[in-house]
Simulated scan of single mutants.
Amino acid sequence: MKVERFGRAAALLSVASFALVACGEANNPGDNGGDGGGDTETSDVQGTLSGGGASSQEAAMTAWTNGFTSVAPEAQVNYASVGSGAGREGFLGGEYDWAGSDAAMDDEEWESSQEICGPDGAFHIPSYISPIAVAYNVEGVDETINLDPDTLASIFAGEITSWDDEAIAEQNEGVDLPDTTITVVHRADDSGTTENFTEYLEAAADTWEHEAHETWPAELSAESAQQTSGVVDLTSQTDGAITYADASQIGDLNSVAVGVGEEYVEYSPEAASTAVETAEQVEGQAPNNMSVELDRETQEEGVYPIVMVAYNIFCSEYSDAETAELAQAFGEYVVSEDGQSTAEEAAGNAPMSEELREEALSALSEISAAE
């Protein structure tokens, strides 16, 4: 049974606000407190939708769930910030109705999703685009430090151990670098952020000898902490520490400008968005799947290559119409102009392009309920 509650994506969007139309019929729009007509419509979807996953999306997810409640007052969306790996595991185990993940499902996970999501399995919507900052805390150094991929990899591999190392100094003329010991801080839990960061190191650096994975290489000795907030807190408390984290959550920490071609590029929403626009879409899995493969070795001017594309992973088919309707409605709000703007204000992510939004809404329109 195809869910028919929501019309085509373009009909759901307006410049002023997000208009969510239920059952193809608009409810009486509000007027922001006056008696005249406004253009904000609400949805009559109801029930509770439960999700879990990436902690990097936590700020954006709070903005999305609050924003969705404002247009769908009879609906409630809960999100557990448990990490990407645990989120996907909970989704596949039936604990969550959808998952937030900083990394796409592999083929084995997607095949498992067919057991709960119908023959087309689950599909990915790239809802949250964010640069991964290489953040550091070095007392007395307030300048942005430049680091090329090989130097970054050598630091995180424990081969460069002091901030005044020659490899760092020669890229940062005029910066008074102390002889402070470098303390590498990594995620202790399964993390899509770790997978994205190590994927970058594997692709861009000749000095990195480890495969990309959502867990940090066990053979590398370093400090660790749980989730994004944990690594940021530990780095903030440790002179000489360096870590990797969603750029929107690094707080007052400084961050590295990464070597790309002949220049050094600082992270920004614009530089991250450019990286995604040049990415290739991964083929296979569900027909409406939207996972992408980023070019980590790019030499393009102005591109920040350490980018995380966080997905919301939904079922193509849900067991009941209420859950299918809620999942589709929430997904459509997240990728709407209002939803992306709300998340940008709360979390600093890079809003998706209009072309990507249209594709996402088309993919979400394929959600159905079992007969």
Rank of each mutant, 00 (worst) to 15 (best):
S84T: 04
A245W: 05
V138N: 08
Q171I: 01
A363G: 03
A16F: 12
S255A: 14
E270N: 06
G158A: 10
E108I: 03
L20T: 00
A205V: 11
V3C: 03
A104D: 02
G33K: 04
G34Q: 04
Q285L: 14
Y318F: 06
D107C: 11
V141S: 06
Q114P: 10
Y304A: 08
L294N: 07
A257V: 06
V82R: 04
S291E: 09
V265A: 00
L177I: 00
A225K: 02
D97L: 01
Y79F: 10
A347K: 03
S130K: 14
T144N: 08
E344S: 14
A347L: 01
D179Q: 06
E283M: 05
Y96S: 07
A26C: 11
G83Y: 06
D176I: 04
L361Y: 14
G261H: 01
W208G: 14
T40C: 13
S154A: 07
T144V: 00
N288R: 09
G83F: 05
D246P: 10
E354P: 07
S362T: 14
G230T: 03
E317M: 00
N32W: 13
A343L: 09
L92E: 01
N349M: 06
A363S: 13
V334W: 13
E74S: 12
T298N: 05
Q281D: 01
V184T: 15
P305E: 06
E337D: 13
A122H: 09
S127H: 13
S224Y: 10
Q249A: 15
L49A: 08
P29L: 00
D165Q: 10
P131K: 05
I116C: 10
T65F: 07
L326S: 05
S368G: 11
S229K: 14
S191G: 09
E280Y: 05
N28D: 10
G7I: 03
E109K: 11
Q299R: 03
A135N: 01
P178S: 06
A169N: 03
F18L: 10
E277I: 03
L147W: 03
A157K: 09
E345L: 15
F6K: 11
E337K: 15
C315K: 06
A363H: 07
